[in-house]
Structures are given as structure tokens and as C-alpha cells.
């Protein structure tokens, strides 16, 4: 009977440890924006959020009616479940989720769905979604 209770305990432990830690990849990414066909519309330097340190620049490019966000010379402290947002606020309440952060280092490009109003969505954020913690913010300006 001890074996059965042990097995049951094992299942519980496995179940509780199955939750993803969701750490961001650290291998540098080097994606580029075609500056010959894209126009730089907005830009801002990253500043530290409530957790960790961040460096780099957020650039918004417009190419053939579609917006892209570039994180240039970017680095950030690693954390769980880091996402890239376009947000109306520095602590995100109303935001567009551009997906998970591809890497903690390098040059990265994210497609922006639709045509957000950048007079409202004026912040690019790196945000830990799972624990609601801000890692970095960049105010986008023309």
C-alpha cells in the first residue's frame, strides 16, 4: 500500500511541476528591417521597468501599409513568460500583444496586426504576462 501512496504522490508532484517556467531564449536574434522600402515612423529608447534591466531602442516601421516593431541592439534580463506589447499605458491595461519575446538579446522584428492609433498606443513594453511584471518600457515618438 505504501507503493500505491508513493505513486499517487509522484503523480501529484509531476502534475504540479508540469507548469511551464516559460523562460525566454537567450540565443541572440538578428532580424532586419528592409529600410529601403520601410519608413521609420516612431522611435523610443528602452528604460527599465519594475524588474531587471533593459537596453536598446524600439522602432516602428511602416512598409506597404503594414506596421512592424523593431527591437534594435536589444537586451533584457531574462524572466518567465516575457511578451512584447504595444500599450496605451506603461503598466499595461489596454494593449496589443505582439507575442512572446523571441530572445533576451539581439535585433528583433515583430509584425503589428491592424493599424493601431499610435497617439494612443504610445508605449512598447517588455512584460512578464504570467506574473504581471514590467521589465522594460519605451515611449514611442515621431
Amino acid at each position: 500500500m505504501k507503493k500505491i501512496l508513493f505513486l499517487l504522490s509522484l503523480v501529484v508532484v509531476v502534475a504540479t511541476s508540469c507548469s511551464k517556467q516559460n523562460a525566454t531564449p537567450t540565443a541572440p536574434v538578428n532580424e532586419i528591417v528592409d529600410t529601403a522600402t520601410s519608413n521609420l515612423k516612431y522611435s523610443g529608447v528602452f528604460m527599465n521597468g519594475n524588474e531587471g534591466t533593459v537596453k536598446g531602442t524600439a522602432n516602428i516601421y511602416l512598409n506597404d501599409g503594414k506596421y512592424q516593431l523593431q527591437l534594435k541592439d536589444f537586451s533584457v534580463t531574462n524572466g518567465p513568460d516575457l511578451h512584447v506589447y504595444l500599450s496605451k499605458e506603461t503598466q499595461p491595461i489596454n494593449f496589443v500583444d505582439l507575442g512572446k519575446l523571441k530572445s533576451t538579446n539581439g535585433n528583433q522584428v515583430y509584425d503589428i496586426p491592424g493599424t493601431p492609433d499610435f497617439s494612443e498606443y504610445k508605449f512598447a513594453l517588455v512584460h512578464c504576462q504570467q506574473y504581471d511584471v514590467l521589465f522594460g518600457k519605451s515611449q514611442l515618438q515621431q
Partner: peptide, 13 residues
């Protein structure tokens, strides 16, 4: 009864 179950990113006891 004591029961432990698992699913995708979730579990229950």
C-alpha cells in the same frame, strides 16, 4: 477516495 489527475498545463487532486 484520493485521486490525482493531470491534463495539458493543469492538474487536480
Amino acid at each position: 477516495d484520493l485521486t490525482a489527475t493531470v491534463g495539458k498545463d493543469q492538474g487536480a487532486v
